[in-house]
Design a protein around this nucleic acid. Structure first.
Lengths: 154, 154
DNA sequence: CGGTATTGTTCAGTGCACCGACGAATACGA
DNA sequence: TCGTATTCGTCGGTGCACTGAACAATACCG
């Protein structure tokens, strides 16, 4: 009967947080490259030559979503995909010069944006903020792929 | 240039948190009704007869998105929209009996899910968790609406 | 060696989320 | 009162995100 208070629902808060971030990103970082796209660029700067699935794993996207993101980055000339001669199932991914330049530019802006985004928190609070979110997210991901599914309500 | 560490990027963490929640919701609450849809039901339980825009404001969705969500709920027979006789621009929204029943059922399951989701945190940490996220989200939203006075509800 | 399983990618379908533009209804000001 | 503003809802376009199914290449096993 009574309605719940959404401000104590972590899911609702998570959505609002992500939306707030999305909007700030759009105004302070880029209107063309999105945050997930940047995450992919960032991963390929660190580890060139990864295949799609692994990149998806690194940034936390499933195979379908990562395929779309990579396709967009490819269309914009920021990365190349080449069939792996050793294993014909995979595509090896590698940033173009343009991709590297874009990554460098956005890295600077992203740092600036994070300052603004986290401005309401003290340095100590930021540490706690990261820690708490990470712990909750990690634990929930752990529930996904256990050897033994605890309960499978269907 | 060196790649950034995504685990200190609030946007990346926010996305991972929301994804983790989405997955848990799907297995523990409902595969048909999503978390945003539940938020709409919840709002209409508390305040029947709201118009679309206001519901969107309550749950933090823009006009386009709230229109789609409401259209889906209407298609499933969970709510009715009636043109406001006082103001022909709006639709007044109201849950059906089925909608109320669904809300009640999901409220129980949502509470259970939140327990699991927040299990990694102590009660004190949960309070901090809510507080920090709320402050960051509120501040970022504040950046959007320059000097919005805390206007009285109409 | 051949048949089956696994793995990487793609495709179709659903849903959330934003923006900008548009039409209809209403509110406001000259 | 009439014309302009604003407001509510819709529509089209883009992009993220998941599931389940299909397909091809490779790996494994009898």
């Amino acid at each position: 009967m009574a309605a719940a208070d959404l401000t104590t629902h972590p899911g609702h808060l998570a959505r609002r947080l992500q939306q707030a971030h999305y909007l700030l990103w759009n105004t302070m970082v880029s209107e063309e490259i999105t945050s997930p796209q940047f995450a992919v660029l960032n991963t390929l700067v660190a580890e060139p030559g990864l295949d799609q699935r692994t990149v998806g794993e690194r940034v936390g996207l499933d195979r379908s979503t990562i395929a779309e993101v990579i396709s967009r980055l490819g269309r914009r000339g920021l990365l190349d995909k080449v069939r792996d001669p050793q294993d014909g199932r995979r595509f090896l991914l590698r940033l173009t010069d343009e991709g590297v330049r874009t990554h460098r530019k956005l890295t600077v802006r992203t740092a600036r944006m994070n300052q603004v985004f986290l401005a309401p928190l003290t340095p100590e609070e930021r540490t706690v903020f990261f820690d708490l979110i990470r712990r909750v997210a990690d634990a929930a991901e752990g529930l996904r792929n256990p050897e033994e599914p605890l309960v499978a309500p269907r």
